[in-house]
Design a protein around this nucleic acid. Structure first.
Lengths: 217, 217
DNA sequence: AAACATTTGTCCGTATGTATA
DNA sequence: ATATACATACGGACAAATGTT
């Protein structure tokens, strides 16, 4: 019997990493509420660990902006204000626009195919009003572009911003409408035509529209 | 005798923070060389601390991209390639451009005065070929704009990118020429005229030029 | 004012994993 | 293959700081 060559990578995740991903998840989906006090000893018991990996995870979550530590006093989950979307979207937009611009000369046929396939599933999710899946697929879509841009600084910054957007989604039902789907279509078209300028203006319009929609409510 | 009202804030910095800033400094200025192995016990002795705050500081430095930890194996200072500037500059440019755009409606007369005063010192430093001070003053200049933009996501992202630029400066002598000074003048002018579009194009031209200059060498 | 309760910060011993002889 | 050396990962005790009674 041949040994499978596609080893499932030995993803030996440390306790710290497990704690990090678990806590991040809980903060994003609201299991841990904004303002909630986090005591490491309590979390340690809940996750069956010692305080050390918990503390380390909390410190990383603080860097990312999901947790605030008040030395000697308390550690709390950060608040999530609806107005933060106004700060989040423009930053997201310019970085995604730049990613698009940088991706133009690099992007492969295969990646463009994946964009089309992803946007197909995106349209379905929107049609079925499955907005949670729509968000996840939307992230997939943009990740392909980010991947093609091949710029590590942009990659980490966008992934951080996306996690905050995801949190906003859970706390103040963000909407992804059919307009988004059509914009994705246009983005794909711009890639095919290698039209970097068009990509930039599409991203820009996208966040202006999103903010206007938000204010309308 | 009146008690001074301007208390020197009780900046009771933790051992972890001290370790963080010291190590960051050493990595940026090259005291700790790229690829160098960092063992916590050794650093702990050097800074007269225990291993815990060192470990915590190293983990934060990893998030920021100055350190890479290979679990169970080693912790090393990340490499600093000259080509990384190509990735750094466009990201820096679009975020600074956005900061400028967002700052336009907010910026005060006082802040504009500070821009002018800062740029005056900037010009002096360049004239005297004091490039290290020029870099620091350039950062001051942009910090004023970032402050006026009042967007916390942009603030943290730019501060991180700036620290990487500073590191590049120490390792591969980056140059700030008189062109930069003139560009700052134009930026100030655009603020006075509240011309957001001009601010955006100025930032964009800035990084295109910088990259071209870099390739020329 | 002072002792107390609570929580974070720090120290250091030990377990676990990795690479090399 | 086994043993050994070495570095990180983790655990638990203690110290320091904060707020309160």
């Amino acid at each position: 019997m041949p040994v499978p060559t596609n080893h499932s990578k030995p993803v030996r995740r440390s306790a710290k990493e497990n704690a990090y991903f678990q806590l991040e998840q809980w903060i994003i989906d609201g299991t841990l509420q904004p303002g909630e006090k986090l005591t490491d000893i309590e979390l340690a018991q809940a996750l069956n660990l010692s305080r050390t990996p918990i503390r380390e995870a909390l410190q990383l979550l603080e860097v990312v902006g999901f947790v605030k530590m008040y030395p000697g006093k308390a550690t709390t989950v950060t608040e999530v204000f609806k107005e933060d979307i106004k700060d989040l979207l423009p930053a997201l937009a310019v970085l995604q626009a730049l990613a698009g611009e940088l991706a133009v000369p690099n992007i492969t046929e295969e990646q463009i195919s994946r964009l089309e396939e992803t946007n197909f599933r995106f349209a379905q999710a929107i049609k079925e009003k499955d907005s949670f899946n729509a968000l996840k697929i939307d992230e997939e879509f943009h990740r392909i572009i980010i991947e093609a841009a091949q710029n590590p600084y942009i990659t980490t910054m966008l992934s951080r911003l996306q996690s905050h957007v995801r949190r906003q989604f859970f706390h103040h039902s963000l909407e992804l409408t059919e307009v988004s789907w059509k914009e994705h279509e246009e983005i794909i078209q711009a890639f095919k035509e290698k039209d970097a300028e068009r990509l930039i203006s599409l991203s820009k319009n996208n966040w202006i529209r999103s903010i206007e929609e938000m204010n309308a409510k």
